[in-house]
Simulated scan of single mutants.
Amino acid sequence: MSELLVADGERPREGGVDRPITEVAVGVLIDDAQGCFLLTTRPPGKVYAGYWEFPGGKLEAGETVAQALRRELQEEIGVTIGQAHPWHQKLVDYPHALVRLHFCKVYDWSGELQMHEGQEFAWQTLPVTVEPVLPGTVPVLEWLAQEAGQAAGQP
Rank of each mutant, 00 (worst) to 15 (best):
Y51A: 04
V28Y: 06
G35P: 08
L134F: 05
L38G: 04
T22W: 08
A84Q: 00
A97I: 00
V133P: 13
Y107H: 15
Q83R: 07
R70S: 04
Y48A: 10
E142D: 12
C36R: 15
R71Q: 07
G15T: 15
D32S: 15
V47P: 06
G136H: 00
L134T: 07
A152W: 06
L5Y: 02
L101Y: 15
E10F: 06
I77L: 05
G111D: 10
G136F: 00
R13Y: 14
R71L: 03
E75S: 06
L59E: 02
M1G: 15
P55G: 14
E76L: 02
G136I: 01
D8S: 00
P44H: 11
E60K: 08
G50T: 11
G78I: 00
F121K: 10
W109T: 08
W143M: 01
V26T: 11
E120F: 12
E117V: 05
V106I: 09
T125R: 14
G9T: 12
Q146P: 04
E131D: 13
G35M: 06
E142Q: 12
H116F: 06
G27F: 03
L5W: 04
H102I: 11
E76N: 09
Y107R: 14
T137N: 03
V133D: 10
Q154E: 12
V128I: 12
G16E: 04
C36H: 11
L73M: 14
V140Y: 00
V140G: 00
V28D: 08
V99D: 00
T40E: 11
A84I: 01
A122P: 01
S110W: 10
L126H: 12
L69M: 14
P135C: 07
K105I: 07
G56H: 06
G62D: 03
D108M: 05
V138C: 03
P20T: 11
A148I: 07
V140W: 00
S110N: 11
E60T: 01
G27D: 09
R70W: 00
A84G: 01
L144M: 14
G45N: 05
D8Y: 02
G16H: 00
T40C: 10
P55T: 14
L126I: 02
Q150G: 08
Q154M: 13
R19D: 02
L91H: 01
A97D: 05
Q124A: 09
E142F: 08
D32Y: 13
G62A: 06
Q119P: 03
A61L: 10
P139Y: 07
Y107C: 05
V79F: 01
T64D: 09
G50K: 10
C104K: 07
G78L: 00
E53Y: 08
V138H: 03
E14N: 12
H116Q: 13
Q124C: 14
D93K: 02
Q124P: 05
C36Y: 04
T137Y: 03
P20A: 13
T137I: 06
P43L: 08
H88D: 00
M1P: 14
E14K: 12
V26Y: 02
A49K: 05
E14P: 10
